[in-house]
C-alpha cells in the first residue's frame, strides 16, 4: 500500500485551493461596475438633479424607504413624504420613483443584477415605460 498517499492529499489540496481562489480565476469580473443611467427626459428636465433624499442614502436605503412608504401609504393612508430638505413627494413607486427613473432597465435592473438582488416589487408594480412599448 502507498504510504503517504501524497497523490490523494495533493489532489485534495489542489481542489481546495482551486475552490477558495474561485473568484480570482473565475475572471469574469473584469467588467466595470455598472453605471446607472440617469439619462431620462424627466431627469434632464430637472433644475436640481436631486433624488428624494441624497444619493448616498438612497443607494443604501431605498428598499427600506420604499417599504416604509408602502406600509404608510397603503395601511395608514399617508401618501405624502416630506424629504429632509422640505420637498414633498407622493409615496409611490410608480407615481414618484419611476417617473424620473423611467429607464428601469438601465437604472434599477443594472444594479440589482450586479449585486444579485431580486426585489419582487415589479411583480405587481408596473413600469409605465414598459407598458407603452
Amino acid at each position: 500500500m502507498k504510504q503517504h498517499k501524497w497523490g490523494l492529499i495533493l489532489l485534495g489540496l489542489a481542489i481546495f485551493a482551486i475552490a477558495v481562489t474561485f473568484p480570482f480565476w473565475y475572471g469574469k469580473g473584469k467588467t466595470a461596475p455598472p453605471v446607472l443611467s440617469l439619462e431620462t427626459p424627466e431627469i434632464a428636465g430637472l433644475a436640481d438633479k436631486k433624488c428624494v433624499e441624497d444619493a448616498v442614502f438612497m443607494r443604501a436605503n431605498h428598499m427600506k424607504m420604499l417599504q416604509a412608504w408602502r406600509d404608510e401609504a397603503v395601511r395608514e393612508g399617508k401618501r405624502v413624504y416630506t424629504a429632509n430638505d422640505g420637498r414633498t413627494f407622493e409615496k409611490s413607486l410608480t407615481g414618484s420613483c419611476l417617473q424620473c427613473h423611467s429607464n428601469k432597465e438601465h437604472f434599477c435592473d443594472r444594479c440589482h443584477h450586479y449585486v444579485g438582488a431580486a426585489p419582487s416589487c415589479f411583480d405587481c408594480h408596473i413600469v409605465p415605460a414598459e407598458v407603452k412599448k
Partner: peptide, 16 residues
C-alpha cells in the same frame, strides 16, 4: 444598510 454596489465593486476589485 450599505451601498451594495460599492461593496461589490470593492470585492470585485480584490478578485481582479
Amino acid at each position: 444598510p450599505v451601498d451594495l454596489n460599492a461593496v461589490k465593486t470593492m470585492a470585485m476589485g480584490w478578485a481582479t
